[in-house]
Nucleic acid binder design. Structure first.
Length: 260
DNA sequence: AACCTGTACAACCGCCTAGGA
DNA sequence: ATCCTAGGCGGTTGTACAGGT
């Protein structure tokens, strides 16, 4: 007995979304809010699967998304968080307001991986490639640390929406990165700034049944941008992100010149 | 100009989990 | 306790575009 498909796929359209489809989806979601994704395509008059609609909204149409390449500061934060969290893109995205897990994952695979390799850093273990090659035990330990949170029990906690108590518990546990001061309070500050900006938390943009106007969303986005800007600009520990990141990689030869 | 190759990123797929019936 | 559904996640694929030959 196979798994049931997420929806009836016969007759459904696949592939790139057209402007018309985008417009239908956006106008529907903005006037009705997010409710049951399975019903959205029917109600919005789209020949798409609900899952596809959710993805399109989450990764592309959400008004609070930032567009364009990740900034240098964002890249550094992604690397830092990846060293801390591994390939848990949604968790990483939760720390970067206006960015989606998909976007970060793509950026990691196409840009950051290469840069790290170019600098002689293993993008998986965040160790020097030569060090990792010559010290399999250390490599194994590092990998085990990255793998650990994905164990079933931890995974079930991880699935909780960012910013919840469960998530906070996880943050409270000291990690090697935090012990080195890498995490600073960057992570907690960012999450405090925007609990609603990860794809997983996107539902908070508009509660079920809520009618949301574009201006409201943009205004909220503006608030996020201001806070994020001050966060990055050096208020509090903003300046420390870059400094700590380079400190973190100092033993593996993180070359700031190469990066910039 | 035509073709080939590499790159970037949008979109899909399959699996997992939570929650409700 | 079990089954089913919806939502979410990470990995992978597909496609458009740019640059090189």
């Amino acid at each position: 007995m196979g798994r049931q498909p997420c929806c009836e796929k016969v007759g459904l359209k696949k592939g790139p979304w057209t402007a018309e489809e985008d417009q239908k989806l956006v106008s529907f979601l903005l006037s009705h809010g997010q409710c049951c994704w399975r019903l959205v395509p029917k109600l919005a008059g789209l020949l798409r699967c609900g899952k596809s609609c959710r993805l399109r909204w989450t990764n592309y149409l959400r008004p609070d998304l930032k567009r364009g390449l990740l900034s240098g500061e964002e890249e550094k934060l992604v690397i830092d968080l990846h060293a801390h969290l591994g390939n848990r893109w949604s968790k990483i995205a939760a720390r970067l307001p206006g960015r989606t897990d998909n976007e970060i994952k793509n950026h990691w695979n196409t840009h950051i991986k290469k840069k790290l390799k170019k600098m002689g850093i293993d993008p998986v273990t965040h160790q020097s490639l030569s060090l990792a090659q010559h010290d399999p035990l250390k490599q194994q330990q590092q990998q085990a640390r990255l793998d650990e949170p994905t164990k079933p029990l931890a995974a079930s906690q991880e699935r909780t929406v960012s910013g919840t108590g469960a998530n906070d518990k996880e943050e409270a546990a000291p990690t090697s990165a935090q012990l080195k001061g890498v995490a600073c309070s960057a992570a907690s500050s960012a999450s405090a700034v925007s609990p609603s900006c990860s794809s997983s938390a996107s539902a908070s943009v508009a509660p079920p049944g809520a009618v949301v106007d574009w201006p409201d969303l943009f205004e909220m986005d503006g608030i996020l941008d201001i806070d994020w800007a001050s966060f990055l600009s050096g208020d509090g520990c903003g300046n420390r992100i870059g400094v700590d990141l380079f400190d973190h990689y100092s033993d593996v030869g993180f070359d700031q010149q190469v990066w910039m």
